[in-house]
């Protein structure tokens, strides 16, 4: 038993991101409210970002900033060699991934606004019910279907 707990504590950062990821995933799948779905997606993505950041960690490392970067190439080299840095690459990657996540969120929110204008609700059930009713004013496709049946 204690072995498991040790493992959990030794790598608690990974456990946290797994937990967060599951929370986010649950929200994306199970929540009926569209905004909550988007929040879930954000949590999900953030968990992955945390994972990357954890990857970059080097024991005793410092932020990967060149302390005397502007003083010329030699100084920069010196700075690099003397100090232990954490791995900067995952940070950079995650920066890009964050941009992507922000874009996704923006698109999602824009879509949600459109959906709200169209259906007057953000609850998936209500929207589904509207679409099931096949009201012509709500759905072009539904209108066609009705015409087809007549």
């Amino acid at each position: 038993m204690s072995g498991i707990i040790e493992i959990i504590f030794a790598e608690f950062n990974y456990w946290i991101y797994v937990t967060l990821m599951m929370i986010g995933f649950y929200a994306m799948i199970a929540k009926k409210n569209l905004i909550k779905k988007v929040i879930g997606a954000n949590i999900f993505q953030t968990a992955i970002f945390l994972f990357y950041i954890s990857l970059a960690e080097v024991k005793g490392g410092t932020a990967p900033i060149l302390l005397h970067g502007h003083d010329g190439a030699d100084a920069a080299h010196k700075a690099v060699s003397e100090v232990i840095y954490v791995n900067p690459l995952p940070h950079v990657l995650i920066l890009t991934a964050i941009v992507v996540a922000v874009s996704t969120t923006a698109v999602a929110l824009a879509l949600i606004i459109k959906i709200y204008e169209e259906y007057g609700s953000l609850e998936e059930d209500v929207i589904l019910a509207y679409r099931r009713q096949l009201q012509p004013e709500f759905s072009e496709h539904a209108r066609q279907k009705q015409e087809g049946e007549q």
Partner: peptide, 12 residues
């Protein structure tokens, strides 16, 4: 006028 923001940042 709706202008959906698409992928604006391609750089890595």
């Amino acid at each position: 006028e709706e202008e959906l923001p698409a992928s604006e940042e391609a750089g890595q």
